[in-house]
Write a protein that binds this DNA or RNA. Structure first.
Lengths: 258, 258
DNA sequence: ACAAAAGTGTTTTGTCTACACCCATGC
DNA sequence: GCATGGGTGTAGACAAAACACTTTTGT
């Protein structure tokens, strides 16, 4: 460990030192449903079980670097460097779990990250590494290793809440997309139906959200839709949609009555 | 470190091991203004500078336990055990910072916590420990040690956003309080004026928020106000105010225009 | 009596929802 | 032409801001 010789400026001996892992809740929308990326573990503990991609932080790297590296090693996914800023991808810290009672090997701290990504095929799925695959959220009942079930639940709830107030739903879309595609993201993440007409008005009418490209997209039946991109100069992490796009009230979200 | 003899089930040797600290953003409302608790550092690094209370996590304790222990050691403050559940106090995890470039002693991870507490005097301020004191948020420009300025900013923003949707503003109040006291909390945390009449109707009309005690409080001039307490059986961490109490729109909060 | 603060009623204004309707394309 | 989905207009329900007004205390 990097400890200086200065007695007055060293980490005290009584301080604990902990192995730290990063685990990534990688979400995407495929075929109208929210999916999460899981891997099959090749090593103990929890060998053979599914888990979120992740692993130990190495000396000299940041947490974000560790998250990107583990994701690439275990799933072949390369996270764009700017995923933490503007652009279709989005990587943000979720929260930290541990260190007690979550790893049979001993006290381990885990810093969880949330990745929102457009749909795409997995490179080299089923290669020599552990198989990585997208599973629909809600069908991962095959128990996840460690406390990854809890981490996944926290990540999904964060994503659901966040797209109400931020332009982050666009992180699930390709760089250019139609309003219908964006609406599909909301419906998939929230698991609800959204009125297409009102959504169109609200999404296009929100300042600082969408910018028309002028081009048309969509080859299916019906009138072709206009293509939009995220408004330029907007940091999806910090920007606030005003007014927000609120998910329909469900009984579970109301405050409990006394 | 707790590593088993099982070669197949041990933390890999290449994994880094990091000292971990907890730092606490303790906020309260005094005299109509939001205050944060800071201590003066007696040891290097940053000796003599102000810092958020906090310190190293010891082996065998949880992060929450470490946060409570450090707070008590450095400020004499005893955090009620149930601060993470119902009750006037509230302690929640904020986020994790590091490990690189934030501590001159080397890579150190810091898990920050947010504590919302009612106003009270500090026991033994200026005793043999480092002096702990409340400073108004915005006047702590005396630069804080480490990255504590950033942590404080994140904590304040979290508090501001959270009281919109949760009953957590009550964490700043004594167990029984008047609607005016509660309104004072909102005004202090948001730094805005709130219409007393509309606030009263909204706060008392929100199901699952306030419960009248029947008693009266307030000895000042004017009609005495009814005393309320948080509605029983409500977990302030999880409960959602519906509809939310929205802070007045300020130009800075709107989405940036293209 | 007066000031001050609590609490209620009412008006105005805006926003959300639901749905009727037109537009543009594939077949 | 007709089905399908994109996009606009509009009326009613609903909630929020603004503020007049009554109530209840201290001085």
């Amino acid at each position: 460990m990097a400890r200086t010789a200065h007695a007055s400026s060293a980490v005290p001996e009584t301080a604990g030192s902990f192995p730290v892992t990063v685990d990534v809740v990688a979400l995407t929308v495929r075929a109208g449903a929210l999916h999460v990326l899981v891997v099959d573990r090749l090593l103990e503990p929890f060998r053979g079980q599914s888990a979120l991609p992740g692993g130990f932080v190495l000396p000299g790297e940041t947490l974000e670097q560790a998250a990107g590296r583990e994701l690439e090693e275990e799933t072949g996914l390369t996270v764009p460097a700017r995923a933490t800023g503007a652009g279709p991808w989005h990587l943000e810290q979720l929260r930290t779990y541990g260190p007690l009672g979550r790893d049979p090997r001993g006290p381990v701290l885990s810093v969880a990250y949330l990745l929102l990504a457009p749909a795409f095929g997995l490179p080299a799925a089923g290669g020599d590494a552990a198989e990585a695959r997208w599973v629909p959220v809600g069908e991962e009942d095959e128990r996840l290793a460690f406390d990854h079930g809890q981490i996944l639940a926290d990540g999904v709830e964060r994503a659901r809440a966040k797209i109400e107030y931020s332009p982050l739903a666009a992180a699930f879309c390709p760089p250019e997309f139609t309003v219908a595609e964006l609406r599909g993201v909301y419906e998939a993440v929230w698991g609800t139906q959204v009125d297409a007409r009102n959504f169109h008005r609200k999404a296009t009418g929100t300042p600082g959200f969408l910018e028309p490209t002028g081009r048309l997209g969509g080859g299916g039946p019906g009138r072709p839709a206009e293509l939009y991109r995220l408004a330029p100069g907007v940091d999806p992490t910090a920007a606030v949609l005003h007014p927000p796009l609120l998910r329909p009230v469900s009984p579970g979200r109301a405050a409990p009555s006394a």
